[in-house]
Amino acid sequence: MTVFEGNTVAAATAAGLKQLHLTREQVELEVLAEPKKGFLGIGKQAAQVRLTAKPQPKSAVPARAASMAAKSTPSAATDAGVSAAAVTTKTATPAKTTAPKTQKKVVMPKPVITAAPVSEKPVVTAAASTVITKPADTTAPERTPEQIAARQAANEQAVRDLSAYLLEVVKQLGITADLDVDFGNRYATLNFDTVKQGLLIGKHGRTINALQDLAQVYMNHHGASHVNVVLDVDDYRERREETLERLAESTAREAIATGKQVFLDPMPSFERKLIHAELANNRHVTTFSEGRDPHRAVVVAARK
């Protein structure tokens, strides 16, 4: 007596008959639960049936089993004058059966394929079951002299266009200036020559730094992103570097004396690097940056 489940009563019954190896006429069916679909999958219930095997009549014993029992009785039991009840039947000793030898299953080694980069093609050899990968060619293709010359000409043209663009921008600011350009393979230094130096530099170099960021964006949009642009006014960059070095040393002394963190004014990234580099070998202080551009600033703190 076993309970079976299914999507429908018929499906549950079929599953039970298959498991019990019986037919529908050989079992008694009792439906325990009807299937329910539920709403949006909630409350769904499968059909449940109980199958009970019917008792088999004695007449259903196969004739073959009876004949096998008859063969097991000794022939002497059929002699006259001997009662069949007095004859002890000997059960035939089952013949020894030789179990078939289990054949050894030969398992062929499976080739192992390892993951390879997209640029590599794995080559599998079935005999050795190994993977041979061809290394990707990471060598950059060499450029021809004509390509190098064309690239250099394009960069020079981009720098000339940038110079004209910057002169027009400063003209809109009311500043009359000339440009002295120093151009190399990966750099371009543009030095303004003007009588209004302070107006072009701005407070703490904010105006010239903003123009430098604008110039770098211009070069990026004209396919010369690898060219680093620096704008200068009357050697302002050199004088600013000396000022930052003195500022780093004085700030370090203040941090050591007070034992507190000292915050500097917000600076562009290349000026913050100068402060970090100047105090990198100082064993008494440490430096780090806080904030987000354009308000990111260097912090100098005493080592504990």
Results as ranks from 00 to 15, higher is better:
residue 44 K to E: 07
residue 46 A to L: 13
residue 47 A to H: 02
residue 50 R to W: 00
residue 51 L to A: 04
residue 53 A to F: 04
residue 57 P to H: 05
residue 57 P to S: 03
residue 57 P to F: 03
residue 61 V to G: 07
residue 64 R to I: 00
residue 64 R to P: 00
residue 65 A to C: 10
residue 67 S to Q: 14
residue 68 M to I: 08
residue 68 M to L: 11
residue 68 M to C: 08
residue 69 A to E: 05
residue 75 S to D: 01
residue 76 A to N: 14
residue 77 A to C: 07
residue 83 S to H: 03
residue 83 S to C: 09
residue 86 A to C: 09
residue 86 A to S: 15
residue 86 A to M: 07
residue 86 A to N: 11
residue 87 V to E: 04
residue 87 V to Q: 03
residue 90 K to L: 11
residue 91 T to S: 09
residue 93 T to C: 08
residue 94 P to H: 15
residue 94 P to L: 15
residue 97 T to D: 04
residue 98 T to F: 02
residue 98 T to H: 05
residue 103 Q to C: 04
residue 104 K to I: 15
residue 104 K to L: 14
residue 104 K to M: 12
residue 105 K to C: 04
residue 107 V to E: 12
residue 108 M to P: 10
residue 108 M to A: 11
residue 109 P to W: 04
residue 109 P to H: 10
residue 117 P to F: 04
residue 117 P to A: 02
residue 118 V to F: 08
residue 119 S to D: 13
residue 120 E to I: 06
residue 121 K to D: 14
residue 123 V to E: 11
residue 126 A to R: 10
residue 128 A to Q: 15
residue 129 S to V: 03
residue 129 S to N: 13
residue 129 S to K: 08
residue 136 A to F: 02
residue 138 T to S: 00
residue 139 T to K: 08
residue 140 A to L: 04
residue 141 P to W: 15
residue 145 P to E: 09
residue 147 Q to C: 07
residue 148 I to W: 00
residue 151 R to E: 11
residue 153 A to H: 02
residue 154 A to K: 12
residue 154 A to T: 09
residue 155 N to E: 07
residue 155 N to S: 15
residue 158 A to R: 06
residue 159 V to T: 06
residue 161 D to K: 01
residue 162 L to D: 01
residue 163 S to E: 05
residue 165 Y to F: 11
residue 167 L to W: 04
